[in-house]
Design a protein around this nucleic acid. Structure first.
Lengths: 134, 134
DNA sequence: TAAATTCCTACCATTTTGCTATGAATAGTT
DNA sequence: AACTATTCATAGCAAAATGGTAGGAATTTA
């Protein structure tokens, strides 16, 4: 059970975008790549996931780039991680393929664990993360 | 971020062993395999991990098998999962290879998340799990 | 028209996962 | 002593997931 690099990098990107949120300017992938030390091409994938979940907005073409769709204190770390980490479901038996279909003794437990993690993740805003006030 | 099958199966096994804890009898892999629907060979690996962490005891030879080293209400789900799931550390930057060495903005966050998950896992005993009282 | 950018899709190497296989060591049974 | 039932140790392997890279199309500004 480990977060993917997408999750780590996703948070980096989000923090960078948070910094320039007040200016209203967009930030392009090239800059984000420099700030984070992650390749442009890989960042493109990750940002695409965030865009799909409406966490970031983009403008295309020259002088284009990305910015947050909302203020950093209205975005939670949970939102970001769920957007970027496709397997935040913890165990398969939460959706379908549990070996002990129906009679899985731990099903209820996994479900509660999932809730517990997500509710924690949703108490932390991007603003807090960016200011390291956790 | 998904629990491995070892984590799922590990809980199955632990629950089965909890059932026979009061009798004091050992349970062999063959039985555990029948109860859980997981192959004997794979279970052997998983149980070995639990043994290494002193969660189960074994007796070898004919009539041998496994039993819990302690009462189900003295064993937590956290203990079991940490024994069986080698990657419960959530992100690499918790031990060493963070891309943004030192200046990782999220480091503190990941650390707190790790604590949060583990402390939750340690509130749940195997007894509760076996009785589905979670 | 040219340059700068996002967007889309395909591909690929490495690592991890989820097993299976073989056989040695140990202990009870006859 | 021989046989059988069991755990224990180690090796191997196919499939899936991870962590990227690559190429180029679409869009916008200058």
């Amino acid at each position: 059970m480990k977060m993917s690099s997408k999750a780590r990098y996703g948070l980096y990107v989000a923090v960078e975008l948070a910094k320039s949120y007040d200016s209203g300017d967009v930030v392009n992938v090239s800059s984000l790549s420099q700030y984070t030390g992650v390749s442009e091409k890989y960042l493109e994938h990750i940002i695409a996931l965030m865009k799909k979940s409406d966490i970031v907005l983009s403008t295309r073409g020259a002088n284009g780039g990305y910015k947050l769709s909302d203020s950093p204190d209205n975005i939670t770390v949970g939102q970001i991680l769920r957007a970027v980490e496709d397997n935040l479901e913890i165990v398969d038996c939460l959706h379908s393929e549990c070996a002990q279909r129906g009679k899985c003794v731990a099903h209820n437990f996994w479900s509660k664990l999932y809730e517990n993690i997500n509710s924690y993740l949703d108490t932390i805003t991007l603003k807090q993360l960016a200011e390291d006030k956790i």
